[in-house]
Design a protein around this nucleic acid. Sequence first.
RNA 1: GGGGUUGUAUGCUAGCUUGGUAGACUGCCGGCUUCGGGAGCCGGUUACCGGAGUUCAAAUCUCCGCAACCCCA
Length: 479
Amino acid sequence: MVQFDGITVKKSEFSEWYTQALIKSEFFDYSSVSGCIVFRPDGYFIWESIQKFTDLAFKNEGIKNAYFPLLIPEKLFEKEKEHVEGFNPEVAWVMQVGNSKLDEKLAIRPTSETIIYDSVSKWIKSWRDLPLRLNQWCSVVRWEFKHPTPLLRTREFLWNEGHTIFATQEEANSERDRILQIYSTILKEYLALPGIIGQKTESEKFAGAEASYSIEFIMPDGKMIQGPDFHNDGQNFAKAFDIKFLDKEGKNQYAYQNTFAITTRVIGAMLAIHGDDKGLVIPPKVSRIQIVIVPIYNNESKEEVLSYSNKIYTELNKDFRVLLDDVDIYSPGNKFNRYELRGIPLRIEIGIKESRENALTIVRRDLMKKEKIENKGITSQLSNILYNMHEDMYKKAKEALSNAIVIVNNYDELKKALSDAKIAQAAWCGSDQCEKTIKSDTLAKSTNMPFDAQQGIEKKKCVYCGNVAKHIVNFAKSY
RNA sequence: GGGGUUGUAUGCUAGCUUGGUAGACUGCCGGCUUCGGGAGCCGGUUACCGGAGUUCAAAUCUCCGCAACCCCA
């Protein structure tokens, strides 16, 4: 059978598969602006889910939401030197309104440190005003010149930006693990997505930060991609924006700051990692439709099958997001293929047999095996099945991640691992020189230094120069 | 950062070399028959990426722009 509107390539042809899966599933679409994509309802639902649960976790942490302007005056933007140097090439500017040129051009935020800190510097006067922990949900524009890829590299993307301000460095630092924990919980519990948590190297850290941390994912083509991140900004921005307070002794002090973000890019990583040859596989918790019921009937059985299907629908609709697809211009096979492309977690097939036997035929999207279950306590049966599906998806992704990492003991092994499209986990002396040479030599960059891989580092030698190693770092081709 | 390819309807594509009525399949809409893995028949619907140029005449040739994709660094 010719498949005209399904995916025409296998997932192993990853680049082509990825685009087709996102577009043909009707989750996302291109727009007329290069590098800017449209989130269609099923795609946007995933982001709403991430937002909802992240937002709740932030609020439980004591972080409050606020909103700052989209446009940033040039003068403000240029206050922190490293920051402006890091972002300048990608900043889009508003220069003109109607026919008149603006006296001072306005940056469309690539990130909001400068506009936020300009405001908060006026609000913070005393140690009693601290900590001030703010977050905003918004989109930012970074005019990338590399080839855009939907979700993974777009010129506008959606994110949260957390900006927190503390009286002491200890307090600021102690926030790090709690935020990274929130992010990795969201990834694991909602997106079934495992990642590698670690610190970025000096050369890969955020423009203006003292230390950066990230959660990195491994894509099916062996490249790594950075997910959520967290930055200790120290007093860099506080000094640039004059964020000062009087401490308990009456002395003027600069504050310590952190920033952190999760972006719509994680959706791209998730879809890429879980999908298969037939299309997307959406984790149940973030799928707009969790269960689709496909009735199968002929003229004779129509009434009975639809009545049974409706009964099941009504029961399940109390606890799940269910669609009963009783449109009769498509054959069941046609519907199966469409819902598989769209990654609906669970399909229920109901025909005359199921009706007579008081049973359901169910198919989990990730396993694609048909199974008949009794129509008894189906709410709890199905919620167990969806729970198991989530767990299995996470396990499978975790295995793929573990299998992709190769621990290398010398430079040849590192090069071999990278040419095999693997992640090379190597000991490194910490010098900029070695890191740069490896990068230009192999085209792979350091992604991060995984927290859980650092033990025993004192006994190891740098994979490039042979000097005493200071860190274990992952090198990978990267998005 | 460098090099290359492509753009025709929802999608896929023919036509372009040699300028002259834009065609198939799919989708979508209506109707009838169907329905356990992309059903059939009949009828209908929709397109030359944008702009400029050459020409009696441009999907086709030229230039500029926009967009998408690939390769190398």
